[in-house]
């Protein structure tokens, strides 16, 4: 029984990692063919694909563990696959951070979100490389190279826009005020985060330091005080997530098991 709870927690943790990557990946993919310049369109589409790739790896591993569970205890439909996990779960079952599901806004909002989120992933994956589950460790190691690039690319944009024209500075400031209320959720403890609980504080310290350094270079300032939202990891989402899922899951919901 204890082992089952342990495994369920691990599965939830994997779904959380996968959902985060899938949803922010989907948001970034919405830029495809709408980027501000051809080259940046390709860059953000590449980043979107990196995220979807990470999501697939985590879902595949989660599906494997789900299928290993004793049947009577499983709260998941079996057999699980990466597709059933991505396409056949409802919004309340998704465990992504709220930050990832917010609409794209403008280029400043989009790049700042990638900056906040990839900084978080950068420090998280560095810890996950030492995870006792060898599969999680391997996915983290593979993904870290991608994340390192996302972080460099997005830092570059935060600095460019913050230290750019009056308008770009204003847009970046607007983005900071809009996104900051969703940043502290990244470091919220949660049952299924058990294995990472004691490292969250360290990740937060490293994250704060990173944000501070880039903001200094960009001539930007952290908001003094701000309301903080949370609930995503528990399945309490903004109204934006169901809209994403409606679009993303439409085909599988209307034509179950269809292939194309």
């Amino acid at each position: 029984m204890e082992h089952e709870i342990f495994m369920l927690n691990r599965i939830e943790f994997l779904l959380h990692l996968a959902d985060n990557a899938l949803i922010i990946g989907h948001r970034n993919s919405e830029w495809c063919a709408h980027g501000p310049a051809l080259e940046q369109d390709i860059a953000i589409s590449n980043i979107a694909l990196d995220y979807i790739g990470q999501a697939r790896n985590f879902y595949q591993h989660a599906a494997f563990l789900i299928n290993e569970l004793p049947h009577e205890s499983s709260v998941f439909s079996i057999p699980a696959t990466e597709d059933t996990l991505a396409y056949l779960r409802d919004a309340s079952a998704f465990k992504n951070h709220l930050m990832t599901e917010l609409p794209n806004g403008d280029w400043a909002f989009t790049t700042l979100r990638i900056f906040f989120f990839s900084s978080y992933q950068y420090f998280l994956y560095q810890q996950l490389i030492q995870h006792e589950d060898a599969q999680i460790a391997a996915i983290a190691e593979k993904s870290l190279k991608e994340v390192t690039y996302h972080l460099r690319w997005s830092s570059d944009w935060v600095i460019r826009l913050g230290d750019g024209t009056t308008e770009s500075y204003q847009r970046m400031n607007t983005a900071i005020n809009a996104l900051w209320p969703y940043t502290q959720e990244l470091f919220q403890e949660n049952n299924f985060l058990q294995p990472t609980k004691n490292i969250l504080a360290q990740i937060q310290t490293d994250w704060n330091e990173k944000i501070k350094n880039i903001f200094e270079e960009a001539g930007l300032h952290l908001p003094e005080k701000s309301v903080q939202y949370q609930g995503g990891t528990k399945g309490f989402h903004t109204e934006h997530l169901p809209i994403i899922l409606t679009e993303m899951q439409l085909l599988q919901r209307v034509y179950p098991n269809c292939e194309w």
């Binding site: 310049a37 080259e39 940046q40 390709i42 860059a43 590449n46 690039y149 460099r152 570059d156 460019r160």
Partner: peptide, 15 residues
């Protein structure tokens, strides 16, 4: 390709 400066040109070329 188009880029604002050399650093961005290399990043863009990578993509």
């Amino acid at each position: 390709l188009h880029a604002a400066d050399a650093a961005m040109a290399i990043e863009n070329a990578r993509d």
